[in-house]
C-alpha cells in the first residue's frame, strides 16, 4: 500500500452528478483498505453553482480537503470548471475534462465571454490532459445521464484502481434498473482512457 495519499478533485456544475462519482471512488478506496476522506458540497451551491468534491485516500489521511497544487488528478465534468480548479493540480498531475460546456449566468446573458478553447489551453499547460465527450459515450451506452459513470471509468483507469472493485461499488450504489447501462458506461470510460494512454 502506498504511504502517499492520493488526492482526487472532482469538479463540475451543481446537478451534474459529481457526488455519485466521488462516492463511488471513495467506496472503492475503502474496499481496498485505505483510510479515506471525502469532502462534499451541499446546500446553496448545488443550485447550478460551481461544485467540488474531494476524495483523499492513503495509509493515513488527516485533512478532508486538498491543498492547492496537491491534487494528483483533476476530473472536470465541465470545461470551465477545469480551468477554475486547475491551481489545485500538482505539478505532473493528470487532468480529465468532459467536453461539455455549461454557460454560467454572466455568459448566458452576454456580459462575459466563455473563454475560447479553454480545454485546449489547459491541455497545452498540462501535458497529461485527456478530453472526452462523456455525454455522447453515455448516450451510446443507452443513457446520457450515465456520463458521470463514464468519467468514473476514466478515473479508475487513470489512478489505477481495480475494475472489479469499482463495479461492485456501482452495483451497490446504482438502482437495479439502471445497472446495466451504468456498468457498460463504466467499461467504455475505462477503455477510452487506457487507449489514450497507450497512444502516448
Amino acid at each position: 500500500m502506498p504511504k502517499q495519499t492520493t488526492n482526487v478533485l472532482i469538479v463540475g456544475v451543481g446537478g451534474q452528478g459529481t457526488l455519485l462519482t466521488s462516492r463511488i471512488i471513495a467506496q472503492v478506496a475503502v474496499q481496498m483498505g485505505y483510510d479515506v476522506k471525502v469532502s462534499e458540497i451541499h446546500g446553496m451551491a448545488q443550485r447550478g453553482g460551481s461544485v467540488v468534491s474531494q476524495v483523499r485516500y492513503g495509509e493515513k489521511v488527516y485533512s478532508p480537503i486538498i491543498k492547492k497544487s496537491d491534487a494528483d488528478i483533476l476530473l472536470a465534468f465541465e470545461k470551465l470548471e477545469a480551468a477554475r480548479w486547475l491551481d489545485y493540480l500538482k505539478p505532473g498531475g493528470k487532468v480529465i475534462i468532459n467536453d461539455e460546456r455549461v454557460d454560467p449566468l454572466p455568459v448566458m446573458s452576454g456580459k462575459l465571454k466563455y473563454p475560447v478553447d479553454i480545454d485546449k489551453r489547459i491541455a497545452n499547460l498540462i501535458p497529461d490532459t485527456t478530453i472526452v465527450d462523456a455525454t455522447r459515450m453515455a448516450e451510446e451506452c443507452g443513457n446520457s445521464r450515465a456520463a458521470n459513470v463514464v468519467l468514473v471509468g476514466m478515473l479508475a483507469a487513470a489512478i489505477n484502481i481495480p475494475a472489479e472493485e469499482v463495479e461492485n461499488a456501482i452495483r451497490e450504489m446504482v438502482p437495479a434498473k439502471a445497472l446495466e447501462v451504468n456498468l457498460k458506461a463504466f467499461r467504455e470510460g475505462q477503455k477510452y482512457l487506457s487507449a489514450t494512454l497507450n497512444r502516448l
Binding site: V13, G14, M44, A45, Q46, R47, G48, G49, S50, L80, E81, A83, R84, L86, D87, P104, L105, P106, V107, L112, K113, Y114, P115, I118, R121, I122, L125
Partner: peptide, 12 residues
C-alpha cells in the same frame, strides 16, 4: 488562467 474565468454563482 484564473483572470478570465467567469464566476458561476448558484441560480434558480
Amino acid at each position: 488562467l484564473d483572470q478570465e474565468i467567469p464566476p458561476r454563482p448558484p441560480l434558480m
